[in-house]
């Protein structure tokens, strides 16, 4: 157990990935990746399918542990101080993980319990988070009855219940129509702005990137770029992120 104070100081990165490499057999999925995310920022990780985003997220969430390199969440090593690290982390996985047979309230309660929250904390926070996403009246509905966009928002609400300071979202807009996609993205940006939660938003959709976003470009397991989207464009001599991405990776993306 660490004796460091419970509150991260200003200099501690929300997320620090240091020299991480991971291979499945001979296939290197994540190759010597290192970057830092400052507290309270909205960072986009751009990469095509198969670029290594999900593997990297699995390493950050400690679904498995890298043999090389280190991941720290607010200074806590995910492999060694996993309890402190994971309690500061909220995750929305790429695949939907809500149990369709449960009601929204039951799903939120299950998650809250897994994080050791009290009955009252769970009730109050569930109501508050659901009100924020305009689904307060759906607490007692079954997940099955909700639309894809609503389920995603509930997954975000769920991930916020234990008040994490860092949120990972792995392609949360996959399978959503354009309107829900835009709504979800702007909601996540708002959360980051208003609550100061650092967000790492993984996507393969270039139009989700704003020019001022901190941007990480992942390609074939390597980190090809770490900076502002605007800088990427300037460096590649193009006006648009799409063009810059294409020049950088040699691949045309959506």
């Amino acid at each position: 157990m660490s004796l460091t104070s419970d509150k991260p100081d200003a200099e501690t990165a929300a997320l620090e990935v240091d020299n991480v490499r991971y291979a499945f057999g001979d296939r290197v999925a994540v190759d010597d990746i290192g970057f830092r995310i400052a507290p309270g920022t909205f960072t986009i990780m751009l990469g095509l399918n198969g670029a290594g985003k999900t593997t990297l997220f699995s390493l950050i969430t400690r679904l498995f542990v890298a043999r090389q390199g280190r991941v720290r969440i607010f200074g806590y090593d995910v492999a060694r101080q996993s309890s402190q690290a994971l309690s500061r982390l909220g995750v929305v996985f790429q695949q939907p993980t809500l149990d369709q047979d449960l009601t929204v309230r039951q799903s939120l309660r299950y998650h809250g319990r897994l994080h050791g929250l009290s009955r009252r904390e769970i009730r109050e926070r569930s109501e508050r988070e659901l009100a924020r996403i305009g689904l307060a009246d759906r607490l007692n509905d079954r997940v099955r009855a909700l639309s894809g966009g609503q389920r995603r928002r509930i997954e975000i609400a769920r991930a916020l219940l234990h008040r994490p300071q860092l949120m990972l979202l792995d392609e949360p807009t996959v399978g959503l129509d354009v309107d829900s996609r835009t709504a979800l993205l702007s909601y996540a940006r708002k959360l980051c702005r208003e609550d100061g939660v650092a967000m790492l938003w993984a996507t393969h959709l270039i139009d989700e990137v704003d020019p001022d976003d901190p941007l990480l470009v992942l390609h074939r397991g390597r980190l090809e770029m770490d900076g502002r989207a605007r800088e990427l464009c300037r460096a590649q001599g193009t006006d648009e992120v799409a063009g810059a991405f294409q020049k950088l990776t040699g691949v045309e993306a959506g």
Binding site: L63, S87, F93, T97, H115, G116
Partner: peptide, 17 residues
């Protein structure tokens, strides 16, 4: 289905979960 992931990102030790 991914709900195993939800379980395993709980901050409690994995053997306990």
């Amino acid at each position: 289905m991914g709900s195993m992931k939800t379980l395993l990102v709980s901050p409690l030790p994995r053997w306990y979960l």
